[in-house]
Nucleic acid binder design. Structure first.
Lengths: 334, 334
DNA sequence: GCAGCAATTGTTATCGGTATCTTGATACCG
DNA sequence: CGGTATCAAGATACCGATAACAATTGCTGC
């Protein structure tokens, strides 16, 4: 029992020393064999690997991490507060996560998922890099994690004071594309529904405004904090009550757009004959909505993969530049 | 530069030995002070903690993990293949993750997110426990992770051969509740739309069938593999073409239900006068749908928290029992 | 026959913490 | 005043891997 060779560690497996003894070699040879190092004889390697499989040997990651000073782990910090706000409860952040995860896994890294609140949970420091998600990544959060001195990439909209790498879809372009669409349709009185206090939404609004300004058109901003169908309906009803005329609606999210359409129809006006509507995100339901919703599509999966690639580059000591992903307007019936 | 006291580790911080030297004490005293151990003098503790703050000292988690043989990490393994299937691209798994994360963080644990495919990425072994998500958690996956000998909890439907702890919502009850609802409405020819090869869906179907059998009613199964609006429409059209009569539809997901409703209306039949429809998941959009959709709600957040609590219990060496979460039928206009 | 080199394997130190066992100092007690 | 209890802090070993350097062997070439 107390014989050294028979000792087992917490997870019930053998230690590398045990395996070495079984194979009649030294630890380092085992280490090399398992790492496919060219420094060991091919036969020895085979033999040791077979032995490892046979005994179901598992490398102790903690020990390896300590020695190598790398955890092969990237911490992803998400906004996850359960509010009616645009948060993790959308399906999209998950797709983003999927992209991140896919790319990191392929590179042999793992994802440490953390919420902003719980991010104090020490483990984050052990990560080799950081990805910060969540709406536009509030500056205070960015600053907080900056102090960890880790390679960091942020999903959001680039802001003036950025020292770190920001990746996001081109929200300004998104706004502009919709504006040009409206102009092409001859619309004159467009409305923007959304909450521009989120950097990403702010960019969409600005792109929208600027592209409309070319034709001397000034959109009306209907500020709505919730990204829900109800909120969209409410916005349109409110316009109607205030007797404000409009012939086009750009909602900064598909649910808002759906609500806006429904309310517009309720008021007896036609979509798209009287009012054009464009949403944002092109959620799966958009195509199935009645009428099928036009929407701006951003490629979340690709965004996640890009985020991952950037951190990996930074971790490897290579430079990484901020980048915006293209978006595309999917024109359907509205 | 080569002075010992000035050495810094990878992340640029001080080592505990450095801090000890600065404070004029030994490493172990620093360790105790930072760990709020009663074995150090209160003054010394204060002094050391202040010093640590001042120098922005960060504990090396890897070293600690190695020594303590615990990582305070739980691996969450999700199904994330990008298919049209019911997968991580639903918003719900994320809520589940939210619940898990919240509970684990509160207990000082972190979440290591992994996909099934990438789960070979060694890091999983370093976890103290395992949570397996994904549709009903295929048995082969379960078996694979079982070999890691870690405390493991699975989200899904309990199956006969389970040696591990399974937590899930009570799908059988979900099916039964809908059946009773239809019975109360006097429906005689119900249809079930979905893919019963997923254990969870299988349970819903069985609950549905059994509860209907009480009244001698036998539902029709419309097997559909995709959980989309289109798929739901297709199912109803197919029923119509085959001239199969029906007066109630239980779709095992809200999107299917929405599609079914739309197709039913297209065929000139009324919902709910001619046909009752109930969906599953009660997604946010269900209430805003026209007509507002009746649906079975499961509490994902709570589910996640429960999963977390179970693994934590197992990790602490306490027993944990399988558990089913109640579901509730939200009756709206359909 | 021996320097020189390549191919293998081993020895020792080290990553940065924490558990265990000891030691030193002070207080308390009869 | 000797002996013990109590508190504070240190010395040492150790967790399980890998890097750097050293050592062994066999073979080549002159």
């Amino acid at each position: 029992m107390s014989k050294k060779g028979a000792r087992r560690h917490a997870s019930g497996g053998l230690t590398m020393a045990d395996l070495a003894q079984l194979a009649g070699v030294s630890k380092i040879t085992v280490s090399r064999a398992l790492g496919n190092s060219p420094l060991v004889n091919a036969q020895t390697r085979e033999r040791i690997q077979a032995l490892a499989r046979e005994h179901d040997y598992k490398l102790n990651i903690s020990a390896r991490n300590l020695r190598l000073r790398r955890s092969h782990t990237v911490a992803v910090i998400v906004e996850m507060k359960p509010s009616t706000d645009r948060t993790m409860f959308d399906p999209y952040p998950l797709v983003l996560l999927g992209g991140i995860s896919q790319e990191l896994t392929a590179a042999g890294y793992s994802v440490l998922l953390t919420t902003r609140q719980g991010a104090s949970a020490a483990a984050v420091q052990a990560a080799d890099g950081l990805i910060l998600l969540g709406q536009g990544a509030h500056q205070d959060a960015v600053r907080r994690f900056d102090k960890l001195n880790l390679p960091m990439v942020v999903w959001g909209a680039p802001s003036a004071s950025d020292t770190h790498v920001v990746v996001g879809s081109d929200n300004r372009l998104g706004g502009a594309v919709v504006a040009r669409h409206f102009i092409a349709l001859g619309r004159r009185r467009p409305v923007f529904i959304g909450n521009p206090s989120h950097p990403e939404i702010f960019e969409r609004l600005n792109g929208f405004i600027d592209a409309l300004a070319v034709r001397g058109i000034k959109p009306l901003l209907m500020r709505r904090d919730e990204f829900t169908v109800d909120s969209g309906m409410d916005a349109v009803r409110s316009l109607h009550q205030r007797k404000v005329g409009f012939d086009a609606i750009f909602a900064c999210n598909d649910l808002l757009a759906m609500g806006a359409i429904r309310a517009t129809l309720d008021l007896g006006r036609s979509v798209p004959a009287d009012v054009s509507v464009v949403g944002y995100d092109d959620m799966p339901l958009a195509a199935s909505f009645l009428p099928p919703l036009s929407s701006v599509r951003q490629d979340w999966q690709e965004g996640g993969m890009l985020l991952a690639r950037k951190v990996l580059a930074l971790i490897e000591g290579e430079p990484a530049k901020p980048e915006s992903l293209p978006v595309s307007l999917i024109v359907r019936a509205t």
